[in-house]
């Protein structure tokens, strides 16, 4: 028996909006520690890892580890029917091939339940090694989204270079080139507006902008985004989910041949 009750149902709505266009079908894994997902996009260039810890749920019952295969587009369609202030409960009986989403309005005067068929998805879990990053960038998530959007109107790949001066996002295309430099700025009145660069050593990597733009769909989840870079390994773009967990996007770099 599985019953997860999330008072801040809008978090789950936002999570689905941020992954449904990147990944079609995925397994949600439920265990005593929490509700998680790990899935690659169809071209195996990007990977998303989601964790919602059990403590973040108002009620978390998971009698045994269970993996539920879902079509994320259909799941998003059902979650769109939940109000932003609704409490969302996810229920599944042992051995059942469906999952039920229950939406309760804050005043409990409206209760809806949507039942979705589960799928069999054979997805291998990948081991993600803990890496020492050459550069860690913490910046306002809206700013990062704006940079990715603006640069993708000029070119389709971005070179992200981190030096002690700051971080530079560069692109080039048929119509010309664009460079955006963000300097470390911690003299802001609100901490979430700061741009922090921890850079043990300079690094420069090239990525496809369309994936970064897809990752920025998670912007509504957090005011800040953490971008961790190391030479020759995937970048990690992480959005914290209100002291419940995180959503991490990994993107393989484009490498000089």
């Amino acid at each position: 028996m599985l019953e997860l009750r999330l008072v801040q149902g809008s978090l789950l709505k936002k999570v689905l909006e941020s992954i449904k266009d990147l990944v079609n079908d995925a397994n949600f894994d439920c265990s005593a520690t929490g509700f998680s997902l790990q899935a690659m996009d169809s071209s195996h260039v990007a990977l998303v890892a989601l964790l919602l810890r059990s403590e973040g749920f108002e009620h978390y019952r998971c009698d045994r580890n269970i993996s539920m295969g879902m079509n994320l587009g259909n799941m998003a369609k059902m979650l769109k029917c939940a109000g932003n202030d609704d409490i969302i409960t996810l229920k599944a009986d042992d051995g059942s091939d469906t999952v039920t989403f229950m939406f309760e309005s804050p005043t409990q005067d409206k209760i809806a339940d949507f039942e979705m068929r589960l799928m069999d998805i054979d997805s291998e879990h990948l081991g993600i090694p803990e890496a020492e990053y050459h550069a860690i960038l913490i910046m306002p998530s809206a700013e990062f989204a704006r940079i990715c959007k603006d640069l993708s109107s000029i070119g389709d790949t971005v070179v992200i270079s981190v030096t002690k001066e700051g971080v530079k996002f560069s692109t080039r295309g048929d119509i010309g080139t664009a460079n955006v430099v963000c300097r470390q700025n911690t003299t802001v009145d609100k901490p979430e507006e700061a741009t922090v660069i921890e850079m043990p050593e300079p690094v420069s990597l090239t990525f496809a902008l369309r994936y970064l733009n897809s990752f920025t769909k998670a912007t509504p989840l957090s005011n800040t985004v953490t971008i961790s870079l190391s030479s020759e390994i995937p970048v990690v773009v992480e959005y914290k989910i209100a002291e419940m967990g995180y959503i991490r996007f990994y993107l393989a770099p484009k490498i000089e041949e």
């Binding site: 990007a46 990977l47 291998e124 990948l126 081991g127 393989a252 484009k254 000089e256």
Partner: peptide, 14 residues
Amino acid sequence: VNQQSQITSFFSKA
């Protein structure tokens, strides 16, 4: 030219 690499060449099957 920049060749797009794949996640699976960095993360092995657990």
